[in-house]
Design a protein around this nucleic acid. Structure first.
Lengths: 186, 186
DNA sequence: GCCGCGTATGCAAAAAATTGCATGAGAATC
DNA sequence: GATTCTCATGCAATTTTTTGCATACGCGGC
């Protein structure tokens, strides 16, 4: 399982607390890894126990204290090692596609709604990613090495998002022939 | 969780046994839902207990007996209902992208290998999907209603596969500037 | 001075998925 | 006829994830 590595990767550049990490996982990292705050807090403690992270409490004015975690040397080494290990993909599980397999005259209208909604969501994400690309990754060939990797992940997200938008349009067009044109029995 | 619905959807057209279902989940259904045989067998029994599936044993010559499952009326109704419920996406978790976030001079070469391998795998799947499309979904506008949904799911898989291929090429091109051109310190 | 709100951390039970193995039956091989 | 292979089904332990709270702190309002 790679939640540990996802967290450590987030901590490469900056020390973060559990809640900050949770927010991170909803944004950039969330493109290809997701975790709830409960998962994150538990994993953080495990990693600290292992000696891969160190923790220190930070007093904040106006907010509860937070616990900042940072990578240790051992953590960095373990992470670097992990890159050479086996790679797994856990492909998307998408209930919407499952629902499409159940397309019928009865539910076509409903599914049109769901696809429209999906289109909206994807569009939002796409705006976000494209904004990030414009701001930070204008000139990919001249990025520092590690950031090239980050850039590539972002690229994949953008490409797939665009493709998904196109697909939504195609789907809506095809479904129009189901929910719209079909002659009701008379 | 929607494993139950994924199984029932597979059983819409034909009664299948656990092992047949498991094979199905590796092929067409696997595009957007995956399950191990252990998961499937357990879920099948649960669904039969609920009365959504019926089971009957079938003797096979040359092979062990198998247990065929088929949808009951109650199952069909429950599935039809489910389509109108809330939809969840559990996005891909892809360790390769996580590894890319850790790109360095040390591991660039290794990651080039991994991306090439990914390219190969995606290409294989794409061949499969395109063959299916050519064989069964030549004329999408005139398909029976339900098959239009199946067609759309396939389309999404093909589009995204093609996009992924293009991305692999882009990634390999960018990484060539890391692992290849960089002057080793002397 | 009490109420509700947002932030930050956490526990614990339940559900789901993964890992590793077990069984039995016929077929194939030697 | 013993051994090994593949198919089909399954159990059980463990790990991972999800769900549903719980606590504590300070701020703002009233």
């Amino acid at each position: 399982m790679a939640l540990a590595q996802a967290i450590m990767t987030s901590l490469l550049d900056a020390d973060l607390s559990g809640s900050e990490l949770a927010r991170d996982f909803e944004k950039s990292m969330g493109l290809f890894w997701q975790a709830s705050h409960q998962q994150i807090y538990q994993e953080l403690r495990k990693l600290a126990d292992k000696g891969w992270l160190n923790k220190r409490e930070v007093n904040q004015s106006g907010k509860p204290n937070k616990i900042l975690y940072g990578m240790t040397q051992a953590g960095r080494e373990a992470l670097a090692q992990w890159v050479f290990g086996p790679t797994r993909i856990q492909p998307t599980k998408d209930e919407l596609l499952l629902k499409l397999y159940n397309l019928s005259d009865d539910n076509a209208e409903h599914l049109v709604g769901e696809i429209s909604q999906r289109r909206e969501e994807v569009m939002q994400r796409l705006y976000l990613y494209e904004a990030i690309r414009r701001r930070h990754y204008d000139d990919p060939a001249n990025l520092p090495v590690r950031h090239k990797g980050v850039y590539l992940a972002l690229e994949l997200g953008i490409h797939q998002g665009e493709q998904t938008l196109a697909w939504c349009d195609q789907a809506l067009a095809l479904l129009a022939t189901v929910s719209g044109d079909s002659q009701p029995a008379r």
